[in-house]
Design a protein around this nucleic acid. Structure first.
Lengths: 167, 167
DNA sequence: CGGTTTGTTCAAAAAAGTTTGAACAAACCG
DNA sequence: CGGTTTGTTCAAACTTTTTTGAACAAACCG
């Protein structure tokens, strides 16, 4: 189905496609869905803010995906609503400071897992106390202590990471 | 199906189950399959090395999963073959130094993506050179430069990460 | 009000990723 | 050699995650 007299924005041009592909790969590494990479990628390479409808039209994704993807990106602090004069619909622009992106990812995706990990390990330590066999209990104690050390190290590394990436 | 006179090793005890659950969660965060967490978790909490058959029997996973999981863990440097006297089958024990685990993960999972990202971005830069519209080309140049900065920062952070985690 | 635009929700469909198990290979052994 | 043990491979089955799109809500507008 060719378009006749196609004035409006449709398919991505080759460069946009390349950029989107880079971000799709990028977010996959982070364990996020492809649509999030597509949306962020297109915003990243667009000179002016885009609306949800723009994203749907240009990326050929469903309204549902676009809505969910934008929500996730907002909660990560990776996109913000742009100030556009007197328009009803909202337009989005990307946050492009690495510090902010990393910070959002750590806050939303890393910290919660670290917390729940620590909790589980505490419970583990309690369970291990109740073991009767002394040798076994001591071995478990060592291993659990190591787990706790791992968690402490991970906790310590995050702020340093952010510091380095926030130049 | 109850077992009569069950002398041999079967299902995990509650503590083992808890430990395995911790590692299953842990590897999920890293984007690795559950079976890898199960295998590493059981090795981590076992006082002596285990064979592939032990893992199959105790975790109730298929031989295929155990084989693939062990291969991945070996390539990550997260398990090693244990020296066991005069046995045909090979036994595995976990590497428990955080430094080693992080190093393996970075080497196997992070670096390759960083490399391929850099390659894609180089190609991007070339494509962008060929854009006719000057304003557009300059905008693209800025954005691509930012991507390159991100990549450099990421590259720099990895050795520092390893250093901090390697006490 | 009734109609239109904008965006969200969520059950079902589709896609992606993981696990299984049967077939195979390789090493050992009597 | 033929039989047994140990481990690998990979297509198909299964599971999990993502995407879709229809139904809905909310805001606006004439």
């Amino acid at each position: 189905m060719p378009h006749l007299l196609d004035g409006d924005q449709h398919e991505l041009d080759p460069l946009e496609r390349q950029v989107v592909a880079v971000f799709v790969d990028g977010v996959k590494v982070l364990g996020l869905p492809r649509s999030i990479g597509e949306i962020y990628g297109l915003l990243f390479i667009s000179q002016s803010p885009l609306s949800l409808d723009d994203l749907v039209l240009r990326l050929q994704i469903s309204k549902g995906s676009a809505s969910q993807g934008l929500r996730a990106l907002k909660s990560l602090g990776a996109v913000r609503e742009a100030e556009v004069g007197a328009e009803r619909r909202t337009y989005y622009e990307p946050a492009i400071e690495l510090k902010r992106l990393v910070g959002g990812f750590i806050r939303e995706q890393v910290r919660p897992h670290l917390e729940s990990g620590k909790t589980k390990i505490s419970r583990l330590a309690e369970t291990a106390q109740e073991i009767d066999d002394t040798a076994r209990r001591e071995f478990l104690g060592e291993r659990i202590e190591r787990l706790e050390t791992w968690m402490r190290s991970s906790g310590k590394v995050l702020p340093i990471l952010q510091k380095i990436l926030g130049q």
